[in-house]
Design a protein around this nucleic acid. Structure first.
Length: 122
DNA sequence: CATATGACGATAT
DNA sequence: AATATCGCCATAT
């Protein structure tokens, strides 16, 4: 018997995650890789975008690098990505970087139960 | 199995 | 700050 819900491939998990990035916010390759279960697979996220951004209709423009900047080369998609983000309200500073503190998506950690320590002070 | 690819990330220089 | 180098690793072939 095959497992009822065999874990999805990394590829699929990444696709699902990227689709959840809210408009006006961004996520980094490494962040997405981590959410997909492998914090060291940032490059694979790039690969997923390369191979499926279009087919899967992903909000690919919301994925940027850990420096808060666009990874696509100038005249190779950079301008388009920048324009799409600006249109969503994302701001770029004078160094062409996005302030991650302001714009990075911070999904709620769903995880399992078990947290909630009554009386715990932080 | 062996190699190649890649919109990365961290570190060294 | 800008560039170079290396480590990583899911997929593709």
């Amino acid at each position: 018997m095959p497992q009822p819900q065999k874990s999805l491939t990394f590829f699929r998990r990444v696709v699902v995650i990227i689709k959840k990035i809210p408009r006006g916010q961004v996520a980094t390759y490494g962040q997405i890789a981590a959410l997909a279960g492998n914090p060291r697979a940032a490059r694979q996220v790039a690969w997923v975008l390369h191979s499926a951004a279009d087919k899967e209709n992903l909000p690919w423009q919301r994925v940027i690098n850990s420096q808060g900047s666009i990874s696509l080369p100038r005249y190779g998609g950079y301008e388009l990505q920048r324009a799409l983000l600006v249109k969503e309200g994302v701001k770029f500073d004078s160094a062409e970087r996005i302030d991650l503190v302001r714009f990075q998506w911070r999904p709620k950690i769903i995880k399992k139960k078990k947290e909630n320590k009554p009386g715990a002070r932080l």
